[in-house]
Amino acid sequence: MDVLYTKEHEWIRIEGSAGVVGITGYAVGQLGDITFVELPSVGKVVKQFDVLCSIESVKAASDIYAPLGGTVVAVNQSLDSRPEIINESAEEKGWLVKIEISDPSGTGRLMERQEYDEYVKGLE
């Protein structure tokens, strides 16, 4: 299983030709308690690093960018009623959307876990 990261703190787990996207534990720590997730509609087409959806906490609203280009094929509907799932499990149950990847070559612009961890360390 291959998980890659962006500088904007999104993760994407590659599952065959699809990828599941979420935000990292570090991002959740920065945002605090998540109060609302504005999910995209299934079928939305995005290019790499386009705005995919947005997440609100009490004092912030953050755009979430697509780690790879593709088409949204599923969204995590349980976030509609329980956005706090992201706080509880950012990198598992708190996934946001699943996309059918259109251009896998974009992975070259993403980071592996170790590289991402070092990147985060540099921010603190």
């Binding site: 609302f36 609100e56 004092k59 912030a60 755009d63």
Partner: peptide
């Protein structure tokens, strides 16, 4: 619901 407002979201 202040995250919709200008002092947080600025031009969005």
């Amino acid at each position: 619901l202040q995250a919709r407002e200008q002092h947080i979201r600025r031009h969005k």
